[in-house]
Simulated scan of single mutants.
Amino acid sequence: MRIIRFLNESDVPTVAALTDENQVFALPYQGFIELVDAANAQGTTPLKLVLREIENGSPLPTAFENLRLLVPIEAPEVWASGVTYARSKEARNYEATGGKLDSTTFYDKVYDAERPEIFFKSTAARTVGPNDDVYLRSDSNWQIPETELGLVIDSKGTILGYTVGNDMSCRDIEGENPLYLPQAKLWKRSCSIGPSIRLAETVEDPYKFEIACRIYRNNEKVVDGTASTGQLKRKLEELVSFLIRDNEIFDGTILLTGTCIVPPNEFTLQDGDRIENEISGIGVLTNFVKRP
């Protein structure tokens, strides 16, 4: 079971349940966290509450593919983890050493360290949803998307659901100096989330998610990568535990868990590109690249 948000015919944001058969049922809640809070107040789970809500209801006549989707949750903050996959470590080493093969750097150290890399990524105002534009940074010449599993958590660090995240990144800025990481990661419309939130209780094994990233230029596929969360170096609960340590986290915060798909080193995004980030059981997050 997945939770989505969309604009109805009156342009009102609407929360809905999306079944695995792609049937859509409107729900009487203003947002994902309100649904979770209602379930807690009734001593039940979000899934059981949703099933009860839609038991005697009828699916919407509009097909899911035709809905005007919004971000499934207006996350107050989005955080991200880095160097959680071997492929990510290799890419960061390549950037930091100017393309020297088989070089080792501090990225090797953080990959093996007890403490993971966690950084602030976005706010609700900077985050966009399905079919929205993501922006290129004006002072970077080497930019890529990063397809990542996103964890939707509450203030205590409980994983409530899973979503797809696009962590836009400037490889040249980060490679120039690791202290430039905030500028390489955080700017207007540099993060997208969607298309749904898969309820955590419906996921038997979060390390079996299949991940894909496809990039199209002039309607021609120029990047096609796949991976699996089974390749993660760290456990999801481990990443969450470091995020909430001595930190104030808000209900609905999202933690992106790193990428295992990195486009070829000679590739950079261009104005007009279309990005499809997909995770099995969650959906396809499509965004269009724009140079503002």
Rank of each mutant, 00 (worst) to 15 (best):
E117L: 12
K221A: 06
V134R: 09
I73P: 00
V36P: 01
I4W: 08
S138K: 13
Q231V: 05
P116Y: 11
S169H: 14
S241H: 01
L160A: 05
P130H: 11
P76M: 05
F119Y: 14
A91E: 12
G175V: 10
D11Y: 08
A96E: 11
D102W: 02
Q270V: 02
D112K: 11
G129H: 04
N166L: 08
R245H: 15
E53Y: 00
R189Q: 15
R52L: 06
T123F: 04
E9S: 15
P178C: 07
N219L: 06
T226K: 13
R189Y: 13
C213L: 15
A16M: 09
R126D: 15
I118E: 09
N219W: 01
P46C: 12
Q30F: 13
P61K: 05
L27E: 12
P264L: 08
S140V: 03
I261N: 08
K221I: 09
R171Y: 13
P178G: 05
P264W: 02
E276D: 15
V71D: 00
N277C: 14
R87L: 10
D246Y: 14
L239M: 15
I244C: 06
V36N: 12
A63E: 13
R115F: 13
S58M: 06
G281A: 07
L199W: 05
T127G: 08
F32T: 05
I173P: 01
S280Y: 02
D205E: 10
R217G: 07
P263F: 10
D246G: 02
Y107W: 15
P116T: 11
D20R: 14
Q270Y: 01
P59S: 10
N22V: 00
T84I: 01
R2C: 07
A184S: 14
N218V: 01
L49I: 03
L70V: 02
